[in-house]
Amino acid sequence: MLLVAVVISTLANVSLGSVNIPFKETVKVFLSQSVQNETWEYIIWNYRIPKTITALLVGGGLALSGLLMQTLFQNPLAGPFVLGVSSGASLGVALLIMGSSLISGLFMFDLANDYSLAIMASVGSFLVLMIVMLIAARVKDTMALLIIGLMFGSITAAVVSILSYFTKAENLQQYIYWSFGSLGNLDGKQIALLMLFILFGLVLSIIAIKPLNAFLLGENYAQSMGVNIKKSRYLIIIATGLLAGSITAFAGPIAFIGLAVPHLTRQVFKTSDHKILIPAVLLVGAILMVLCDTVAQLPTSVNVLPINAITSIIGAPVVIWLLVKKRKMIF
């Protein structure tokens, strides 16, 4: 059923946009039949499909990273945003785009290409995760952990504002556009790279299914059931860093998908078993992201809203609704 939903939302997403292409024609393009208008075919293959694929990857990947974090930190509020992972990625990117130009304006364009962007964002998010993890080992209190994540956000914002004060206007603009979040700026090569990162993260997550399930009872129980806590923790952190880092690098810091989708999925499937949850959050995340993107491009209008705004506007009420309805987040 979820797969059907993915197909439908994908088709809807591809057919809707600033240029109005009938739904029927979109299906025809997919089935490689001839269509009335060749421009439509060109738009679909060169603009819309790459964008939709990006949306699917970003949604699924973010949702998965959120699930991993919620289980690892044993905290229903964990997510790439809350724990400062996106902030770490932002900081990495900010340093690259704005910082490198401060050091030497000449190297700017060489350095700030998409690959180094991805690497910096991944390294940034990975570093923050490591620091949060180290602190988490000392402070068992989950509330403290969330506050620490929040503090990372503040530090990032501070560093970014210092950098932006000194940087050139064009670099600042490049960073701000990145921070809005965007699904449409990736070419085939970048999509392939993003796919590779996500695939790698997914493989690591699948390897970690057993320890992830054991973590549901708590770390002490997990250890008593033969789980190597340290190794599993690193495995999960690396997977999360790869997923959240690469996505943030290519698509910008996208809010709420990582936090909200695992909760939605647990409610729908009524399970916490990661063997079911991992494929489920991938699909639900992908669907939700594609729907958000469909809303963001304001069908039939030439304007496109920043995707980050849409995920927040849709995501935040979902979380509030879950809290009110269930009175507590089932974890």
């Binding site: 054991a214 009872l217 708590g218 059931m225 647990r266 399970t271 089932i330 974890f331």
Partner: peptide, 22 residues
């Protein structure tokens, strides 16, 4: 142990089944 379960969303059977992990 005395620690509360981290996830109480698990069913009784799921918790007992986790015991087979080793």
């Amino acid at each position: 142990l005395t620690n509360a379960l981290v996830s109480k969303n698990l069913s009784v059977q799921e918790v007992v089944t986790l015991g087979r992990q080793p």
